[in-house]
Design a protein around this nucleic acid. Structure first.
Length: 421
RNA sequence: CGGGGCGUAGUAUAUCGGUAGUAUGCAUGUUUUGGGAACAUGAGGGCCGAGUUCGAUUCUCGGCGCCCCGACCA
């Protein structure tokens, strides 16, 4: 994409009403736009990142056997009453509305109820299990306090997967595989090294749930990490008893702040019992389906990546989620430079490489460099009279301090090799 | 929800009970082009409402909105 075509612009100063690093950098770069407290829109560059994160999650959920669906945001009262989650006294963050005829509706804050109800139309035999379904869907939560930029918002897309199994044993098999899928997701988006599977409170059907917590001061949670084992305990269940039961030693645990980027949860039969999701066993017995839920918020994940992977100049996107892989900067307006840069842009694009081409005229070199640092594409390629005199283009990785001159063909093969790897 | 802070050009910030200033961004022109260029010219502003006052952006009250800490986060 030619940068002259992009309708967003960078800005030098972050809005005064944003204190979090993720919001500052994402707004300065034109990735997102704030509509109101806790509600953000995604702009072209931000949406590209968002979609890449979504696609990585989608691939891993598909590999797990999940089937993608999209459930409705509008929810009716009758679906939620059987589980006692319609009342505002029980669930205080519903956004509710009404039909013209005064029928009450809610905007879904999660989707256990509608999916459980829906599944009862399709699941009736042990032969139908296990199954799992997931979606990327907008949730609405009337948080008393939105905060930290896109980390805690009132409207956000969530990947929520729900698993349906015959019994706890079958459920646990899926649950264990989901842990691995989640680890892959966080590794692929570039924050695996900072993300710990964390024991958290479990509910009625299991002692623990598992959260995936990424270490950052911007996080809302306090966790205790065992670095050697690569796991952590959430403060909410941090007791001597729990530490011992997990085979950990208290003096090896390090307290830190972290953000919950994902969680997996054993639901048991709470929802299936209430909503009548049953199946018939091989011996003809009727049993409640055993469920689990598995969530990741792609937007929060994007915010977390920015919190964790940025420096004083801007964002350092991991290749897997960067809006573009290469950022070509055309410096100066000599005909040779423009021709060389345009040719490079076209040949990289033809090779299937995503390129942002800073073809804007009349800007100083410093301004283009500053924008490139802020926007954070993995590779910055400068085409200028100087680079041409030196016999090529200057290639610099965003994550490294110095660039070096390469022939364009050399650069192209570098990118292609990495792709094939 | 408890506590604290704050609303001034697109953005960021000053000042002041009496003509609202600066930077940046924007427009036009000339020059400039390897780390947010220079000069000139121009457009652009007091969240809403009530009160006090000769006069309110400033003071008072109410509303709306935003941020931070805590609580909450199924």
């Amino acid at each position: 994409m030619k940068q002259s075509h992009l309708f967003t612009k960078t800005r030098k100063e972050a809005p005064a009403d944003e204190a979090s690093r993720n919001a500052e950098l994402l707004i300065k770069g034109g990735f997102i736009h704030k509509e109101m407290a806790g509600v953000y829109s995604y702009l072209p560059l931000g949406l590209r990142v968002f979609n890449k994160i979504v696609q990585i999650i989608r691939e891993e959920m598909n590999a797990l056997g999940g089937q993608e669906i999209v459930l409705s945001a509008l929810q009716e009262k009758a679906t939620w009453e059987p589980t006692n989650r319609w009342s505002d006294d029980v669930v205080d963050n519903w956004f509710k509305t009404k039909l013209k005829n005064d029928t009450e509706l809610g905007l879904g804050f999660t989707h256990e109820e509608p999916l459980t109800k829906l599944m009862s139309e399709y699941i009736s035999s042990y032969r139908d299990l296990p199954k799992s379904a997931y979606q990327f869907q907008t949730k609405f939560r009337n948080e008393t306090r939105a905060k930290s930029g896109i980390m805690r918002t009132r409207e956000f897309v969530m990947k929520d997967l729900y698993s349906f199994s015959q019994d706890e044993a079958q459920h646990m098999e899926f649950y264990e595989r989901s842990k691995e899928a989640y680890k892959k997701v966080f590794k692929r988006v570039g924050i695996g090294h900072l993300t710990y599977m964390t024991f958290a409170s479990g509910g009625i059907f299991s002692q623990y749930s598992h959260e995936f917590q990424t270490v950052t001061g911007a996080g809302e949670d306090t966790i205790y990490i065992d670095e050697s084992k690569g796991i952590a305990i959430n403060k909410e269940v941090y007791t001597d008893e729990v530490i011992a039961s997990l085979g950990l030693e208290k003096d090896k645990l390090v307290e830190t702040r972290a953000v919950e980027v994902g969680n997996i949860f054993t639901l048991g039969t709470r929802f299936s019992t209430a909503l009548g999701l049953k199946y018939t066993t091989e011996s003809g017995e009727e049993k409640d389906v055993f469920m689990g839920s598995y969530g990741i918020g792609p937007g929060r994940l994007m915010g977390t990546i920015v919190e964790v992977l940025s420096d004083d100049k801007g964002i350092i996107w991991p290749e897997a989620v960067a809006p573009f892989r290469v950022h070509i900067l055309e410096l100066g307006d000599s005909e040779e430079v423009i021709k060389e840069a345009t040719t490079l842009y076209e040949s990289l694009t033809a090779a299937g490489i995503e390129v942002l081409f800073d073809d804007r005229v009349g800007l100083s070199a410093g301004e283009k460099f500053a924008d490139a640092d802020l926007l954070g594409m993995p590779y910055r390629v400068v085409v200028s009279t100087r680079s041409m005199k030196d016999g090529g283009v200057e290639v610099k990785k965003r994550s490294e301090g110095k660039g070096h001159i390469m022939k364009t063909a050399e650069f192209l093969s570098l990118l292609t090799d990495t792709t094939e790897k």
